[in-house]
């Protein structure tokens, strides 16, 4: 299903402009199809993203060989509260989002602050494929092939100062296109804020994603650019990013604001520390069915313990949940 192009393509040709400019039409068409729930989106004309094929050797943490969640599920069943609280709302309503033009404001403790156009950012990096487990805090999980580049590539370009200890991310706030932001009953104080410690942000597993399943990100999955931190609960992987701020102090995240006892800053996947309202020991790997619910044990750091446990050495993970 993946559309791969030869490696020798010049980095300046990543996401040809014609494809890039057509993306909105593509997503509107695709979302309309999803809404009608007719043929799988996999058969609509995708705009392929050129990228380096994944190194699929066993034991490569960047590539899990587990069964991948079908694109139709990953793109039609997810949380993106900016478009509504139901799992099917993002796929229904995200076509209203304009993702072009797009830029990211870089602020705070950084030598090269400024407004960076997405196309310039994409010219400066190499897109690669990563197949990661995604564990939602609600105890379901998926396996998703992302396209993206390490966040560390951008951080190095922007040159944070010695005072930069944390990074704060901000999702687009645009109620005219994001109907969930117009809801009077939302618990979230928009815009959606997330954050990482600098060493987490620099970790090679931490990905800035611009695509999945060999094509550009569908709007409902956080187009045009989002974060993917595979060892943390999904809500840390902030979508449709418009602002990145380097800070000395730990940012206050949206979920910490809503329910500090339930959602900590770290939010590392941890089967031993329950959400106050439900157990985190098991997860349903989607798609599941009633006859075989696909209930599996949740792994420490979502199975990335070997790679990331060092970041939290000596920390009480029960306290810093």
């Amino acid at each position: 299903m993946l559309i791969k192009k030869p490696d020798d393509i010049a980095s300046s040709e990543i996401t040809p402009e014609a494809v890039y400019l057509r993306r909105r039409e593509f997503m509107q068409g695709a979302a309309a199809m999803a809404a009608m729930a007719v043929a799988p989106m996999a058969f609509s004309a995708p705009s392929p993203l050129s990228h380096t094929p994944v190194d699929a050797r066993a034991g490569n943490p960047f590539y899990t060989g587990e069964t991948q969640t079908p694109f139709s599920d990953a793109s039609r069943y997810n949380n993106f509260y900016e478009f509504g609280t139901d799992k099917s709302d993002p796929a229904k309503y995200a076509s209203a989002l304009t993702v072009d033009p797009w830029s990211i404001d870089v602020e705070g403790e950084v030598d090269k602050p400024g407004k960076y156009a997405l196309e310039d950012i994409l010219k400066s990096v190499d897109i690669e494929e990563r197949v990661y487990r995604l564990r939602c805090v609600e105890a379901w999980s998926m396996v998703i092939p992302w396209l993206g580049f390490p966040l560390s590539d951008l951080i190095r370009q922007w040159q944070p100062t010695s005072k930069a200890k944390y990074i704060q991310f901000e999702t687009l706030y645009r109620p005219s296109e994001m109907r969930g932001q117009r809801s009077a009953f939302s618990t979230i104080d928009w815009p959606y804020i997330e954050g990482l410690r600098m060493d987490e942000a620099m970790h090679p597993l931490t990905l800035m994603s611009v695509g999945m399943y060999g094509r550009e990100l569908p709007n409902q999955n956080g187009a045009p650019i989002r974060l993917v931190v595979p060892w943390k609960y999904g809500f840390k992987s902030v979508k449709s990013i418009v602002k990145i701020r380097f800070t000395e102090r730990q940012p206050k995240t949206s979920w910490q604001g809503i329910a500090p006892r339930e959602y900590g800053f770290y939010a590392n996947v941890n089967p031993k520390v329950d959400h106050p309202r439900w157990s985190q020991r098991y997860e349903r790997r989607l798609p599941s069915s009633l006859l075989s619910p696909n209930r599996i044990r949740t792994q420490m750091f979502n199975g990335y313990e070997e790679q990331v446990a060092g970041l939290y050495k000596g920390m009480n993970l029960r306290r810093y949940y």
């Binding site: 969640t69 599920d73 069943y77 349903r284 599941s288 069915s289 009633l290």
Partner: peptide, 15 residues
């Protein structure tokens, strides 16, 4: 929904 599979990718939650 349960028999004809109209409950989506997470039928347990849906049910």
């Amino acid at each position: 929904g349960a028999v004809l599979g109209g409950l989506g990718p997470d039928p347990v939650k849906a049910l």
